[in-house]
């Protein structure tokens, strides 16, 4: 099955990003294709490489980057939401990109499921 994920909250403030990540990992483990994770609202702040949490905490941006590298999951931040929040190409972690809401529409159309995580 092909699954798209929509993540609407930023890292750390809410559990949404953690649940989305765990869900994506489990879906891949079960043999599904996680096509893309689309970041919206504050969700766009999931992929800034300026993120530098304490060593004993998870690095949420790094984790999304790894997921992209290992499994080819596209990690896509909405351009309008990114511009509002100061997220630009030069501060994105590897494996992520900025794109438009049209891409989210494509993700909704081409996948069997679109699963939303938010708060």
């Amino acid at each position: 099955m092909k699954i798209g994920i929509l993540l609407k909250e930023g890292p750390y403030n809410h559990q949404a990003s953690d649940t989305a990540f765990k869900f994506a990992e489990a879906a891949i483990k079960k043999g599904h294709i996680v096509d893309a994770v689309f970041l919206y609202n504050d969700g766009v702040t999931n992929v800034t490489k300026l993120m530098d949490p304490p060593q004993d905490d998870r690095n949420i941006a790094g984790r999304w980057s790894e997921l992209s590298k290992k499994h080819g999951v596209e990690i896509l931040a909405c351009i309008a939401a990114s511009k509002r929040r100061g997220i630009s190409d030069d501060i994105l972690v590897e494996g992520s990109a900025i794109t438009g809401l049209g891409t989210l529409t494509d993700i909704a159309i081409r996948n069997d499921r679109l699963v939303t995580f938010g708060d």
Binding site: N41, A80, G100, L101, G102, L104, T105, A108, I109
Partner: peptide, 15 residues
């Protein structure tokens, strides 16, 4: 507000 922005873009895709 951002929900409305999403709706307006999706509307162009004839879903």
């Amino acid at each position: 507000y951002e929900g409305l922005e999403m709706i307006l873009i999706m509307a162009a895709y004839e879903q």
